[in-house]
């Protein structure tokens, strides 16, 4: 299963980058989102997955004994998801403003600030 999931993660990375390399701004955002799925999955899997219980201590016990999922990676992913959301929301609004200001959604046309005069 790890192999399949690893390949899936790689696929998500590839797809994310593919979308970001496109011309369209919307695709860019979609790519950013895809990239964040891929990253989260990567961290989730790299911390070793178990087909086991969540890291929640059962009602009548004080410690976790059996095999359980790694809570650390989950906490990291949670933080990363939320931060990612903040940035994605900002980016989504930003493309709205960029479109309003430039009249285009084609990333290739946004090269004014880099060009030599």
């Amino acid at each position: 299963m790890e192999i399949i999931l690893s390949i899936l993660t790689g696929l998500l990375f590839a797809a994310g980058l593919f979308l970001m390399l496109h011309k369209g701004m919307v695709k860019l955002i979609l790519g950013i989102m895809m990239l964040s799925y891929a990253t989260n999955l990567f961290i989730f899997i790299v911390a070793r997955i178990t087909r086991g219980l969540p890291a929640i201590i059962p009602r009548n016990q004080d410690v976790l004994a059996n095999s359980f999922a790694d809570p650390v990676s989950q906490a990291l992913i949670l933080t990363a998801i939320v931060i990612g959301f903040g940035i994605q929301a900002f980016a989504i609004v930003l493309i709205k403003r960029v479109y309003a200001a430039t009249g285009t959604t084609n990333m290739d046309e946004l090269n004014k600030t880099d060009n030599l005069e």
């Binding site: 940035i87 900002f90 403003r97 200001a101």
Partner: peptide, 12 residues
């Protein structure tokens, strides 16, 4: 305009 344009790349 230039700020927005640059920011989008910067953010990405």
């Amino acid at each position: 305009r230039s700020q927005l344009e640059a920011s989008l790349k910067y953010v990405t």
